[in-house]
Simulated assay, not measured.
Amino acid sequence: MKIKDELKAAVISLSENDQNFESLALEVFKFQADQNPVYKAYLKNLGVKPSKVSHLEKIPCLPISFFKSHSVISGKAAIQHTFESSGTTGELSSKHYISDLPFYEYLSAKTFEAFYGPLTDYHILALLPNYLERNNSSLVYMVQSFIYKSFSTKSGFYLNNIEALAKKLELLVNQKNTKKKVLLLGVTFALLDLIEQHAPNIKFPENLLIMETGGMKGKRKELLREEVHELLTADLKVEKIHSEYGMTELLSQAYSKGDGWFKPSATMKILLREVNDPFSYLPSFKIGSKTAAKRNYRKTGGINVIDLANIDSCSFIETQDLGNFSEDYQEFKVLGRFDNSDVRGCNLMTI
């Protein structure tokens, strides 16, 4: 489909704070409003006429739970792969149907390198046990593509063998004639297991970068991100813990270089909706006055994500995460999740 290819080319060309983001988002919206049956029906039930939507903030966001109950697909391209969330026992998992894996691989690598430099500068050690136990994790797929692009024979995945990871870290302490950095990327509970079992006895590389992907996955008591980072920085001898914000339903990522403040990629924009009204946004520099924005930047709201990489599914997602903005509105923090996981907009769907 020619229009989809043109949209993808435009998304690839986006740069940070690109002035074309809004106009491109509106183009993607009109495409998906026509070519995505689920989103089209949702808009109809809301009484929204796509031709009347002329501003970014007026684009309705689809509740993320639709990825559990419906096939959210735009266009008729063949499905190459399905990313699936882990979920819990008895709970439906989210499914994200992917028809262009090279597009995802290219954008995810471009995003990482925009934040951290070339992948070839890293040895990548991935401690993702619960994700590796599934063969359809978007995170594992992304990290696997990063490992290939790192061109490092020392990069690799670790399931439950934390001892082997500890030995690899010690080996990398003694690496000679290389300027490669070490990226240890892990799910939170596994990183905590590492420090409890081996941290006192390990010598860590000086150029070690720790990145947590969040989540205890029922393995441990849930902790605040600040608590986790305090434990990890103390035992892993690093100043900051980096973080990645992504999910099955999104193809773009946001990264934090410390203190839990995330910066979205060039293909992603974050908006915060009122907690009790999914169709109203909190003030920001673009919505309302700058004075109102200054007063409200720390106010908590529901996180809506505009992900222009999601051209083949839906780019406008109402998540179940809560967050707030930094004072300059360039970064956001994830504070938790809604207690009630049923998003009110869902009951508008009858298809």
Rank of each mutant, 00 (worst) to 15 (best):
S243N: 12
Q253S: 13
P200I: 07
E327S: 07
P37I: 04
V28M: 00
P102K: 14
K76R: 04
K257R: 10
L271R: 10
R298K: 13
F146A: 05
E22C: 08
L223P: 06
P118S: 09
T248Q: 01
I3P: 01
F262Y: 11
G258Y: 02
S150M: 11
E6H: 06
E318R: 10
S152N: 07
N160D: 04
K263R: 10
E249I: 01
I287D: 08
G90S: 07
L308Y: 01
L335I: 09
L282G: 15
Q35S: 11
M216F: 04
G345F: 07
Q35V: 12
V140T: 11
L139K: 08
N17Y: 02
V11S: 00
D121A: 04
S93G: 11
L7D: 00
F189Y: 05
F67L: 03
I3N: 04
I210S: 04
Y116W: 15
W261Y: 14
Q253Y: 05
T111S: 03
F67M: 09
E113P: 10
L282N: 04
N160G: 02
E57H: 07
I162W: 02
F115C: 06
H229Y: 08
Q19T: 10
T178A: 00
K44E: 12
Y281P: 02
L139V: 11
L308P: 00
M142I: 11
K176M: 13
P37E: 05
N347A: 15
S315W: 01
R344F: 14
P102S: 11
L308G: 00
I195F: 06
H96P: 00
T267R: 02
T153G: 12
Y104A: 09
K179P: 08
C346K: 12
D121P: 08
N20C: 09
L183A: 01
F66P: 03
N130T: 15
L43S: 04
F204N: 09
P50T: 08
G214T: 07
I317S: 01
T267G: 01
S108R: 06
I210G: 03
L159D: 03
F115P: 02
K4M: 04
T82A: 08
S94P: 01
L62D: 00
Q80D: 07
G302Q: 13
K76N: 13
L208N: 12
L128K: 05
C346S: 14
L231K: 09
K68C: 06
L224E: 14
D321H: 03
R298A: 10
K8A: 14
K176E: 05
D277Y: 05
L191K: 05
F29I: 00
S15H: 05
F157Y: 12
A77N: 09
M216A: 06
L272S: 02
Y106E: 06
I202K: 04
Q80N: 14
K2L: 10
C346F: 15
H198V: 06
Q80C: 12
S69I: 14
K263F: 02
K168S: 08
L223W: 04
L107E: 03
S265H: 06
S326N: 11
N17L: 11
L322H: 09
K49Q: 07
